[in-house]
């Protein structure tokens, strides 16, 4: 089988960004999804949950350029947060790999959180209560009962987050620009190749993205079939 040649630096950067985004998001999304999934009778908390849920889902409906624009502002010297970051790091997060990571995490947040919220809500509370009475601490019940029952949803969340990060363009361009080896991902490389009228190279890069996305979807569908 012939594997088309591709900008290996851009490929490596894309995979590193997608891998780190997935890892960081799963760590962040797990407690957030657990909190969002717990039913609560208190009216005030219910509204807070809805507000957080809407904020988490916002990247699904916002144009990536809007998100990228505000991230760029937020990381720059025009905001208190940006000034604080610059003072701590010695430079702005914008146009760096770490800035790109922050942008990717926000952009892919709903893809990590939503499958986990559904999974948490689907775990029978009776099982957790029984585990507690039988001697499990809250953390023990989470580790021994909730997490194993959600294993498939973690795979789904990870694959969706990874694939979505691999394919992102607008946020990357706004926050990271187009710096080879630092912020130029595969999707930016395609844009550059088309601008340079090098359609053969663009085709090769695009085929890699098609392949990565296809494998990711196969993984999710394979898991869904396995669970049935």
């Amino acid at each position: 089988m012939h594997i088309p040649a591709v900008d290996s630096t851009a490929l490596g950067l894309t995979l590193r960004l997608a891998g780190l985004t997935t890892l960081c998001l799963l760590l962040l999304a797990t407690p957030l999804a657990a909190w969002l999934a717990v039913p609560d009778a208190a009216r005030g908390l219910r509204w807070l949950r809805r507000a957080v849920q809407a904020a988490v889902a916002l990247p699904l409906v916002l144009p990536p350029t809007v998100l990228g624009f505000y991230l760029l502002l937020g990381m720059g010297p025009l905001t208190a947060l940006g000034r604080w970051l610059i003072a701590r790091l010695g430079h702005s997060l914008a146009f760096t790999f770490w800035g790109l990571l922050v942008g990717s995490m926000i952009y892919s947040l709903p893809f990590a959180v939503q499958p986990l919220v559904v999974a948490f809500a689907g775990v029978d509370r009776g099982l957790v209560e029984t585990a507690r009475v039988l001697g499990a601490t809250p953390l023990g019940a989470f580790r021994r009962v909730v997490l194993p029952l959600m294993r498939g949803s973690f795979v789904t969340a990870a694959v969706l987050t990874f694939a979505h990060t691999v394919g992102e363009f607008g946020v990357v361009l706004m926050v990271g620009g187009d710096i080879p080896g630092v912020t130029r991902t595969l999707s930016i490389a395609i844009f550059d190749q088309v601008q340079e009228m090098d359609y053969a190279a663009a085709n090769r890069t695009a085929l890699w993205l098609v392949g990565l996305s296809f494998v990711a979807l196969l993984a999710v569908l394979g898991r869904a079939r396995h669970e049935r």
């Binding site: 029978d124 009776g126 099982l127 585990a131 507690r132 039988l134 021994r144 009962v145």
Partner: peptide
């Protein structure tokens, strides 16, 4: 005390076995 510290053995209604 938290449920796990009450020293109880419990068989709930509907068995509620851990499916995994």
């Amino acid at each position: 005390l938290a449920p796990e510290r009450r020293g109880l053995a419990y068989a709930p209604q509907g068995a509620l076995l851990f499916p995994h």
